[in-house]
Amino acid sequence: MKKFDLLDGLVCPLDRANVDTDAIIPKQFLKSINRSGFGPNLFDEWRYTDHGEPGMDCSLRPKNPDFVLNQPRFQGAQILLARDNFGCGSSREHAPWAIEDYGFRAIIAPSFADIFFNNCFKNGVLPIVLPEETVDSLFKECAAQEGYRLTIDLAAQTVTTPDGDAFPFEITAHRKHCLLNGLDDIGLTLRHAEKIKAFEEKRKAEQPWLF
């Protein structure tokens, strides 16, 4: 997993609530057995005016000029600014894979759906929850200033605007540690292998029907 520490990135605003995982990456792309290559199909149905299928060369497809990702001023954005309940719907990790593959490293929203939120951390993408009013003001500032950037400091747990306003955000110590160091959970968990084994043996003795 890629490390995440300090990010100074261009912001792309996606001004809709309840953006679901079907919208983030439509189901036809879930047939892939790979983890990478989903970026060109991120928000496929909003981004292109034709119907996308796996294997198409997206550089040749007609783009929807009104969709934010296609606007010149947001090219190269690394921070996605979103509304309530971002990532609701299915558990498909293809959603954060597509977001990461496209080049986003962080998403800021007033709330996220639970499984999506979890999946982001496994892929070096930092989902940040900020209060609704703060997100609202970021949307306004982003609309008003071309080239609007934010600085995200994971160690300090802050999002800082170009004017120097710093907003704190929360993250569990475990997730922070994993992101800062680019650590994969499995290796960490297996340090507790003995404990897991002992737990399992006890469980087997008490509830043999589970095994």
């Binding site: 954060p96 999946n119 496994k122 499995i186």
Partner: peptide
């Protein structure tokens, strides 16, 4: 759960 967690559960 997501796919990374599927892997995690398989492994641990």
């Amino acid at each position: 759960i997501g796919t990374s967690e599927v892997e995690h559960v398989l492994a641990t």
